[in-house]
């Protein structure tokens, strides 16, 4: 089946689209019939934060990144800014800064109505942060082992 948000192919049985993060909805099994689906009340955006999109009704509004009406059930992507700052300060400046930029971009795209773009940016932030943290851990481990080896050699 295909994601209703971005059109990417979604694995059968997957709960989220791997490309844009939209909760996958199987046409054959609507989410209401899915007992694992969380109650929508806890998740849904308050109605006042859904921008009234007058621009989408204007002629010629289909430029790239044009504001889209929010698909039902779509949530604001997770905010990775705290993690990005922590990664920047703890180990990995480059990856952390890229993570900061992507997570702020996710926020600003969401505010401007580019919901799929917001999810894409948030996913990029997460990828950069995870890879940076793993590289940081590996470098730290190797440095400790190298230090140990030096000490052993001098004994």
């Amino acid at each position: 089946m295909f994601c209703q948000q971005c059109g990417a192919q979604v694995e059968p049985g997957a709960k989220f689209c791997a490309t844009c993060g939209r909760p996958a909805q199987d046409q054959a099994a609507p989410p209401a019939a899915n007992p694992v689906q969380p109650p929508p009340a806890a998740y849904s955006q308050p109605s006042y934060s859904q921008p009234q999109d007058y621009r989408a009704t204007l002629p010629g509004a289909s430029y790239p990144g044009a504001p889209q009406s929010m698909p039902p059930g779509m949530q604001k992507p997770a905010n990775y800014l705290p993690w990005a700052i922590a990664v920047t300060l703890c180990c990995c400046v480059i990856g952390g800064i890229v993570g900061i930029v992507y997570s702020v971009q996710a926020n600003s795209k969401w505010e401007s109505g580019d919901y799929a773009g917001a999810h894409k940016a948030a996913n990029s932030a997460r990828t950069w942060l995870i890879i940076s943290a793993i590289i940081g851990l590996i470098v730290t481990t190797f440095a400790i082992m190298a230090n140990l080896a030096t000490i052993m050699a001098t004994m």
């Binding site: 806890a42 998740y43 800014l81 700052i85 920047t88 800064i97 900061i100 702020v104 600003s108």
Partner: peptide
């Protein structure tokens, strides 16, 4: 769901934090 209250960080505040770093 939110167990601790956390204010939404606006894009403007996010860019301010980025600039501060």
């Amino acid at each position: 769901r939110r167990a601790l209250p956390l204010p939404e960080i606006s894009a403007r505040a996010g860019w301010f934090i980025f600039a501060a770093v």
